[in-house]
Design a protein around this nucleic acid. Structure first.
Length: 939
RNA sequence: GGGCUCGUAGCUCAGUUGGUUAGAGCGCUACCUCGACACGGUAGAGGUCAGAAGUUCGAAUCUUCUCGGGCCCACCA
């Protein structure tokens, strides 16, 4: 039964089929790997892609890395789990759906909470499926049986449990504090959800009224309606005399007092050096107000409009309208001194770019500085969340790759303030808090103004008695993402467990796979997510969420710009997969990129790796064909034939002694392969993915295809070695390019899937050792083999080069005379290669040394001299010789300078000096020969 | 304002702890059908490693500064 192997690899035809085979095999689930209980564990939580829309290149790169690690570790015999999932991404998803219904002319209020959430869930269901299918397209070997979603019952339950636990430990509190408010989202934001945008702004210099002694400067005149103080620097001589004074002003919203206070934070050089303090609408001012016991007047409401406290003239106006109006008022009353244009950094919402209003509000917070002690938790012994999160990275319990991001992490952690976790978003985990007095929570305004009452219930389940209403707020999406590594591993059947502690302690997966081995993600969510996971997990479990953090870069276009749909420079990964195959796309993400550095993507790159994948395909095609041809067995049953061949223990070559093996080329390639196995393993163990991939590619293309396979066509009967090398290569390359390797593997070995093939090690994969069973093989001997073969390679290259230079027709044969010196034996033994590897040598004569030959091209390779007879072009030859001599002389001069330097000879390691000496001698010798030849040519 | 990062062939990038005449891919030039591969083969051209100073026997690699990109953080109102 002959097999037809297509000429070019066609990923479209095989990828889906292979993925299906993998899924059916069950090997994505570590429970099916047939490993013993004590097998080493490897686990990755897939950073949940937002449940909004489709897969982009950022996801593709994340999937490529994670799959690479998972497959590698699975092949290493570990119990490898890659747990997939999706995140509900509250604000992002809600905003998206709001935009969709806006197109229908509706708002969420038109639909009402319940209907709106139905709509959101439908949307999420849809995009989740899209994302899942696209994840499969990438070849991701994640365990779909353990797939999770942040709003699953089990995960939601865990969220509530953690909330209550933190509340009981007094790490969650309800506070009335200034928060970042997005008027568009109508919700609070965490500090790091606020972005900054540089812009020009008017800085107004003015006085509150004519009698006020100090001119102040502001970019937000409308907030002055809420001022209760003016702050100056205590060192400022201009204002010292006013400190402590209290003035009464009226901007049209009733009289209020302005106290002159001193604060070191005030910059004397900015504006007038005097700052109008608006406690309710600025973080800094709020702190000053706390210190100085100032009144806080809230004049801007949650809708972004001025409220009653702003006065009749302003109530109901938007912030910008109010600004215009009050500036007009100042102008009319001649209070403005000047207006200056300044650069300002405007705070905007990271989801919708709306300017943020800082305002006071009653919200739920996580206390990051509160020191606590938790029984049985090795971290929390009179420590705060912040301290513990800091320490686990400091003492390397968690390693960040690349290391430099530790600095960023520390800096961020040090400056972390209490984390506001309640959001006025509808979509998400509702805060597990119930109130008796429903009116107290119905709208924000009244809630903020009402006194905090004791009619409150906090628990994992709703209170049993009647009359309670749950808080309408939901939790920050990062609160649930923060527990992702372990909430996903909890046994989803909570009923089996009595307490939360019991649930944590006795969930089998959690016990087995946590802490996860590595967290692989983009550096852009180091703070959002990574920091939160560390914080929440050390607290809840008393262990770190992961042992390593591998941060990949952002994917950019060829010009280094961020990819975005609106800009039109985005590359759709699915389109690339359809065109070039998932393997090619994966390689183009991995090779040429280093951790923490951005990666530039463009189509030609993917095309290049598609070519490589195809090259590998054709290598296998050749080997299959060669096997059929060389096989004495008339029954060309590839499968059974190859089953025998790839099994090392059955190595027929050694047993039957069919031909004199190994040849120099065999030893060379097998030694290279052994080195490759060693280096790639080391690279992968140390997260050097790019280098590992590059090495595999180089070996495959340059050494194996371009040299060894060509040699095999001459030396013949190498099907077993070829098979062996290919087999090892497929294993090494599989984590990088799973589809094509599995497909080729299928052609060679129908019984097992490559996905669970054992990762090779130098020792147990060593065909070279088997072949050379009598000779002791050590590193030195093998390296000598390498250099020896490289001499033959140089000779062949030099001859080809000469032919091209002299424009000898490819079909024309030439004769050669070789003076080989002490390499006579070597040259004789490898003459079949020198003659046949596209050098076109016909007759040859090999001597140790001899007379110069006229009318022949002359080559010197090391100490071997070669004359190519019949190649005459005196002028050309002279020119070439002269050029070579010039270069060589320059080179020799450089070495001479080195060796002439006593300091070098004395201080440099002996090896280096000897190496230089040897180079010097060889070069001198070569120079002498070249010069003689040049002279012999005459003028 | 603080911090990080990059600047190596026309383009995109490698270059582990300082030690080969600095590498690869794409592109470019010439030639090629040789038992798999034109998504291929062979050969070649192309770089004072941004600039300056320093450390060292020796620097693309370490230090400092300058110039030029990029990113992150920060309550200059």
């Amino acid at each position: 039964m002959k097999k037809e192997v297509p000429k070019a690899y066609n990923p479209q035809e095989v990828e889906d089929k292979i993925y299906k085979k993998w899924e059916e095999s069950g090997f994505f689930n570590p429970d099916n790997l047939g490993l013993s209980e004590d097998a080493e564990k490897f686990s990755i939580s897939m950073p949940p892609p937002n449940a909004t829309g489709v897969l982009h290149l950022g996801h593709a790169s994340m999937l490529a890395y994670q799959d690479l690690m998972t497959r590698y570790n699975r092949m290493c015999g570990k119990s490898a789990l890659w747990l997939p999932g999706t995140d509900h991404a509250s604000i992002a998803t809600q905003t998206k759906v709001e935009k969709i219904i806006a197109k229908e002319g509706k708002t969420k209020y038109d639909l009402g909470r319940e209907k709106f959430l139905e709509r959101v869930n439908k949307y999420v269901e849809n995009s989740k499926n899209t994302i899942k299918n696209q994840t499969r397209k990438m070849g991701s070997s994640c365990d779909w049986s353990r797939e999770r979603y942040t709003l699953d019952d089990g995960l939601s339950r865990a969220v509530r449990e953690v909330f209550v636990k933190m509340y009981n430990d007094k790490l969650i509190y309800r506070g009335d504090r200034i928060v970042n408010w997005c008027p568009r989202c109508e919700s609070t934001l965490a500090d790091d959800e606020v972005e900054h945008k540089d812009q020009k702004a008017n800085l107004y210099y003015f006085k509150y009224d004519k009698n006020f002694p100090i001119t102040i400067a502001t970019t937000r005149p409308e907030t002055k309606l809420g001022d209760t103080a003016v702050a100056v620097n205590p060192k400022d001589k201009r204002y010292k005399k006013y400190i402590g004074n209290i003035y009464e002003i009226d901007l049209g919203n009733g009289k209020h007092k302005i106290k002159i206070i001193a604060d070191r934070e005030v910059e004397m050089k900015f504006g007038t050096g005097a700052l109008g303090v608006t406690p309710a609408h600025s973080m800094t001012d709020w702190e000053m107000a706390e210190k100085n016991d100032l009144e806080k007047i809230k004049i801007i409401g949650e809708d972004g409009k001025m409220n009653a406290s702003a006065g009749k003239n302003y109530e109901g106006l938007t912030v910008l309208e109010a600004r215009e109006k009050i500036v007009k008022y100042f102008q009319e009353n001649n209070l403005i001194e000047k207006v200056e244009e300044v650069d300002q950094s405007l705070s905007i919402c990271y989801r919708c770019d709306t300017p943020i209003e800082p305002l006071p509000s009653k919200q739920w917070f996580v206390a990051v500085d509160k020191k606590i002690t938790i029984k049985g938790n090795k971290y929390f012994q009179n420590k705060s969340l912040k301290e513990v999160s800091f320490e686990v990275v400091k003492n390397k319990e968690i390693k960040i790759i690349p290391e430099r991001f530790e600095k960023t992490y520390f800096h961020w952690m040090e400056n972390l303030r209490d984390w506001c976790i309640s959001r006025q978003i509808w979509f998400g985990h509702q805060v597990p808090v119930w109130y008796r007095d429903e009116s107290g929570i119905r709208n924000y305004e009244s809630r903020i103004n009402s006194k905090f009452n004791n009619e409150i219930y906090i628990g994992v389940e709703s209170p049993e008695s009647e009359g309670w209403t749950q808080d309408k707020d939901t939790l920050d999406t990062w609160f649930s993402s923060g527990i992702w590594t372990f909430s996903t591993l909890l046994n989803q059947d909570r009923k089996k467990y009595k307490t939360f502690e019991d649930w944590i302690a006795n969930s089998p997966d959690l016990k087995k796979f946590h802490p996860t081995s590595v967290m692989e993600t983009g550096y852009d969510i180091l703070f959002f997510w990574i920091a939160r996971m560390i914080l929440m997990t050390t607290y809840t479990l008393g262990e770190v969420p992961f042992e390593n953090i591998y941060l990949h870069g952002m994917v950019r276009d060829k010009q280094g710009r961020k990819m975005s749909k609106s800009f039109g420079n985005g590359i759709d990964p699915i389109e690339m997969i359809e065109k070039y195959g998932a393997d090619a796309l994966r390689l183009s993400m991995i090779i040429g990129s280093s951790p923490g550095n951005d990666i530039k993507m463009y189509e030609e790159k993917v095309e290049g790796y598609r070519n490589f994948v195809n090259k590998l395909w054709n290598i296998s095609r050749y080997i299959i064909v060669a096997c059929i041809k060389d096989s004495k067995n008339e029954k060309d049953d590839l499968v059974s034939k190859n089953k025998k061949i790839v099994k090392l223990s059955n190595c027929q070559i050694v047993k039957e002694q069919k031909f004199s093996l190994p040849t120099l080329a065999d030893k060379w390639i097998l030694n290279k392969l052994n080195n490759l196995i060693e280096e790639v393993t080391d690279d992968l163990d140390n997260y050097r993915f790019s280098q590992a991939g590059e090495k595999i590619k180089e070996f495959t293309w340059n050494d194996f295809a371009d040299w060894y396979i060509e040699v095999s066509k001459i030396e013949k009967n190498k099907d077993e070695i070829l098979n062996y090398i290919l087999k090892q290569l497929l294993v090494l390359a599989h984590p990088f390019i799973p589809f094509v390797t599995e497909e080729i593997w299928k052609n060679f070995n129908a019984e097992n899937l490559l996905i669970t093939e054992k990762w090779p090690s130098r020792r147990d994969a060593d065909l070279l050792r088997l072949l050379c069973n009598k000779d002791a093989i050590n590193g030195d001997a093998m390296n000598r083999v390498s250099t020896t073969f490289e001499i033959i390679q140089s000779i062949i290259t030099a001859i080809r080069n000469a032919r091209a230079e002299y424009k000898i027709e490819p079909s024309k044969k030439i004769d050669a005379v070789i003076y080989a010196g002490n390499k006579k034996e070597l040259i004789e033994s490898q003459l079949h290669l020198i003659k046949n590897l596209r050098t076109g040598i016909d007759k040859s004569e090999i001597k140790e040394k001899g007379e110069k030959i006229k009318d022949a091209a002359y080559l010197v390779i090391g100490d071997v001299e070669i004359y190519l007879l019949g190649m005459v072009d005196k002028e050309k030859e002279k020119k070439n010789l002269q050029k070579e001599i010039n270069e060589l002389e320059k080179y020799i001069k450089a070495i001479q300078a080195k060796l002439g330097n006593d300091n070098f000879v004395e201080n440099a390691p002996r090896e280096i000096v000897n190496k230089e000496r040897k180079k010097y001698q060889e070069s001198e010798e070569k120079l002498r020969k070249l010069k003689e030849k040049l002279i012999s040519l005459g003028s």
